[in-house]
Amino acid sequence: MGDRLTKLAISDEGFIFDPETGNSYTTNPTGLLILRMLKEGKGEEEIVKALTEEFGAEEEEARRDLYDFLEQLRAYGLVEGV
């Protein structure tokens, strides 16, 4: 998922700081979980599983939303596009 992500400072409240650009972001609890898992190098299946287990999401919706979240990260340049 690239270096950029691993350098982000992420607080428990969902506050994110990007030391490279000085930009800051906020995210919600599901976003926080995804970011943490991405930083740890976890893959799609594991993240979807975590969203369903920890938040009770439907698998299909969680997968759809994960794709969408990745697109948001790409739009902000926090992860690289394909």
Binding site: T26, T27, G31, L35, E53, E54, G56, F69, Y76
Partner: peptide
């Protein structure tokens, strides 16, 4: 399964 599901979002702070 303690927390309610909410679609993941991230916003840039201005």
């Amino acid at each position: 399964m303690a927390r309610r599901y909410e679609k993941p979002v991230i916003h840039r702070l201005h």
